[in-house]
Design a protein around this nucleic acid. Structure first.
Length: 748
DNA sequence: GCACAAGTGCTTTTT
DNA sequence: GCACTTGTGC
């Protein structure tokens, strides 16, 4: 392994393979480079990839790391490079019995969690005003992160007798919540970690097997681990002590969701023989940018002493501009982008990093007006869109009929005339009979008890799901999706609306189909079978599927949080105002101020060459205009690093004459992205329509002797047919009996 | 059961 | 200012 181009500390870290190791890696210090080389070095030393476990926080980081390692040493299919959650999921899939779950358990996301709590509050007659759902969920999540179940919780609150009414209610909800999750054969994200931890902790033979396997363990972004994640890692690493954790306490920005900065601060206490290596040379930013970032972060008390340095020159000074109002601020940023773009920069060199998503709008408007292409990263992925979630629920029911949340989500979507009352009745009956809701509605008697107009649509929906379940082995995921979309009436209901909104949803659903199709194609290309269960797993644990890919030729807009790990030549940080950044809820707490300060540090250190900070004297927030005060971080920042020209308020008039230049207008007529005449979704639309038609007609005109093409099995010959089925002998898999109307069979 | 009107309350975001 | 939730009348 060629470690020559690593610096001394990086090399030391890569070579230190035995025993616990803490790498304190400052921003831009070549952390990933060091980690990937370390893994590659291990493999070169004869360690099997199979014995290596590397844990990251996002799927994206995991994917990137694997890619870079494999570039160095070739493909390593047996190596586990994954997120904490997917690792836990994998352990649980391999040991679901030890966890006390049935095989096809599903993962509930936040939306499901909320729905479940809502049901419980209703069932138990608890007032949502007194016990808001987010409040309950945050307690439950915190308890689980601390590895406390409902019993441990109430114990700590003084026991059932001693606890106050509030804690008793929380206990009641928590207990019921866990019970219902279990009944639905479902886990939430916290359960994933906690159950995996328990399986390892309580089953020596299982733990020993993983300990035995993973001779070398690495954890990235260690500063963002929570208690349970720490416990899992401790268990796995206990036997061999070959644990390498990498992180930067200055970049811990997720305390609000359970990250425990003490894990990194106390690593040396937990592992007394630990070696500590600091990576302090920064390869990203100019001297001025680093100095400015440091002048802010040094105000934090609880941090490990380290200071980044660079061999790069000082570079430009930072620019700070205080504008008249928020609109002017956006205009100013756009003007700067134009000016710099005129000086040989591409639009993808620029990033606008703000504190809250709500700030993006003004920038979008200004950029659009200027004809500057941009891409925006909102936290909203297409998995979270209503229509996508609905379809995922249908697919989940195909895999796990016990999934009550999924069922309740779609039983009346599209509208089938099933209301709240009916759902309550059905649930009660299902619980009494110990049946799933789906099985219950397969019962003709139950069906007859429904309101007349609901009967047929519900029957068809149940049939569609059951058909997909029984035929799952013969269908591609896209087939199943199309079938559900067509046979549940979901697509039709949207298409019949003829509103722009409904049309957009249809587009999204077809988009989602392309996504499914891509997933299958990729799997197939890798020579693997793609199952619906696997796909749902991906969907559940991979929330950032459509997140940042640096798109060429576009300015990037995103929150400071999402920017972590990225870098840009030119960074704008607008909204440097008290109450916005730091946020108003942080102003009265020193801990929260420190986290905001770290966020500021993260933002500033994204910049390679130029950094612009701006604020507005007057800003409209929550529909209310207010005069603002400059951010505490601006007050902390070393003023000598600021460009003197920037420290002014630019009114429109002064701007025209000012040193920052005039709008030239030369960028007008900039080509906006044209509408593509080609519709990439054309084929998808057609496929759904065909399935709907097949469902309606029930006859595909196939006869014995016909040659056919199947979407999953390829070419085949029809042996016999009857009303409901077609028996085909395929070149690839031999004889198959397929359901008529849903199997994608084309006569050739 | 459903459509529409009024009311609320608000960072950040991964899995 | 807006999106999402809850309440009201048909």
């Amino acid at each position: 392994m060629d470690l020559q181009h690593l610096n001394e500390q990086q090399r030391e870290a890569a070579l230190h393979t035995e025993g616990p190791l803490l790498i304190l890696a400052g921003a831009g210090s070549g952390k990933t480079q060091t980690m990937t080389h370390r893994i590659a070095y291990l493999i070169e030393q004869g360690v099997s990839p199979y014995e290596i476990l590397a844990v990251t926080f996002t799927n994206k980081a995991a994917g990137e790391m694997r890619q870079r390692v494999e570039k160095l040493v070739g493909r390593c299919p047996g190596m586990w490079i994954l997120t904490f959650h997917s690792m836990s999921l994998r352990i649980l899939r391999e040991n679901y019995e030890a966890a006390g779950y049935a095989k096809n358990f599903v993962v509930y996301d936040t939306v499901d969690q909320k729905a479940l709590i809502k049901n419980i509050l209703k069932e138990q007659n608890i007032d949502q005003k007194l016990y808001p759902i987010p409040y309950l969920l945050s307690i439950i999540s915190k308890e689980k992160e601390a590895d406390r179940g409902p019993e441990e919780y109430i114990e700590l609150e003084g026991g059932l007798q001693g606890a106050n009414i509030k804690s008793r209610t929380v206990y009641q909800v928590y207990r019921e919540y866990q019970k219902q999750l279990k009944n639905n054969n479902a886990m939430d994200f916290d359960d994933l970690l906690r159950n995996a931890y328990h399986v390892l902790r309580d089953h020596d033979e299982i733990l020993a097997a993983y300990q035995n396997r993973f001779a070398y363990i690495m954890v990235d972004e260690y500063q963002d681990t929570n208690h349970i994640q720490y416990q899992i890692i401790s268990l796995l690493a206990r036997a061999r002590q070959n644990l390498c954790v990498v992180g930067d306490d200055d970049q811990c920005i997720y305390e609000w969701r359970g990250a425990d900065i003490r894990n990194i601060l106390d690593f040396e206490k937990d592992f007394p023989q630990a070696k500590v290596i600091k990576l302090e040379q920064n390869y990203r930013s100019t001297g001025n940018i680093l100095a400015a970032a440091h002048s802010v972060i040094r105000n934090n008390r609880g941090r490990k002493q380290k200071k980044l340095w660079t061999e790069q020159e000082e570079g430009h000074k930072l620019v700070y501009a205080r504008l008249e109002n928020d609109k002017e601020e956006a205009a100013y940023v756009v003007r700067q982008i134009r000016l710099l773009e005129g000086a040989h920069r591409d639009y993808d060199d620029f990033a606008i990093l703000y504190r809250t998503n709500a700030q993006s709008r003004l920038f979008e408007d200004a950029l659009r007006r200027a004809g500057i292409p941009y891409q925006i990263l909102s936290g909203f992925s297409f998995y979270e869109r209503k229509e996508t979630k609905d379809m995922i629920s249908y697919m989940r029911l195909v895999v796990n009929p016990q999934d009550e949340m999924a069922f309740m989500r779609v039983i009346n979507e599209p509208k089938r005339g099933i209301g709240e009352k009916t759902v309550d009745k059905l649930r009660a009956l299902a619980h009494v009979r110990g049946q799933s809701l789906l099985a219950l509605l397969g019962d003709e008697e139950v069906l007859a008890g429904l309101p007349a107009k609901a009967r047929e649509p519900v029957r068809e929906m149940v049939q569609a799901i059951e058909l997909c379940a029984s035929e799952a082995a013969n269908l591609t995921i896209a087939d199943i999706y199309d079938t559900l979309l067509a046979r549940t009436g979901y697509m039709k209901a949207l298409e019949d609306q003829h509103t722009t909104e409904a049309d957009a949803r249809v587009e999204n659903l077809l988009d989602f189909r392309s996504f499914i199709y891509d997933f299958e194609s990729e799997k197939k290309a890798a020579g693997e079978e793609a199952t619906l269960a696997e796909f749902l797993e991906k969907v559940a644990t991979d929330a950032d599927a459509d997140k940042y890919e640096s798109e060429s030729g576009k300015v990037t807009l995103m929150t400071l949080h999402s920017a972590k790990g990225l870098e840009f030549p030119v960074v704008f940080m607008p909204g440097m105002e008290d109450g916005l950044f730091p946020g108003h809820r942080s102003l009265d707490s020193e801990d929260r101020m420190e986290e905001e300060r770290r966020l500021c540090y993260v933002g500033m250190t994204r910049a390679k060459e130029r950094l612009f900070l701006t604020s507005a004297e007057y800003r409209v927030l929550y529909g209310q205009g207010n005069f603002t005060r400059e951010s505490a971080f601006m007050r902390e920042l070393d003023k000598s690093l600021l460009d003197a020209n920037g420290d002014t308020v630019y009114t429109p008039k002064r701007r025209a004459a000012g040193s920052l230049g005039v709008d030239t207008g030369s960028m007008d007529g900039f080509a906006r992205p044209a509408y593509k005449p080609y519709d990439p979704l054309r084929y998808a639309k057609q496929a759904v329509r065909e399935k709907a038609a097949a469902g309606a007609a029930g006859d595909d005109g196939l006869e014995a002797g016909d040659s056919v093409q199947h979407s999953k099995f390829g070419r085949g010959l029809v042996l016999e047919t009857d009303e409901k089925t077609v028996t085909v002998i395929f070149d690839s898999v031999g004889r198959k009996k397929l359901a008529r109307g849903i199997a994608q069979l084309k006569k050739i």
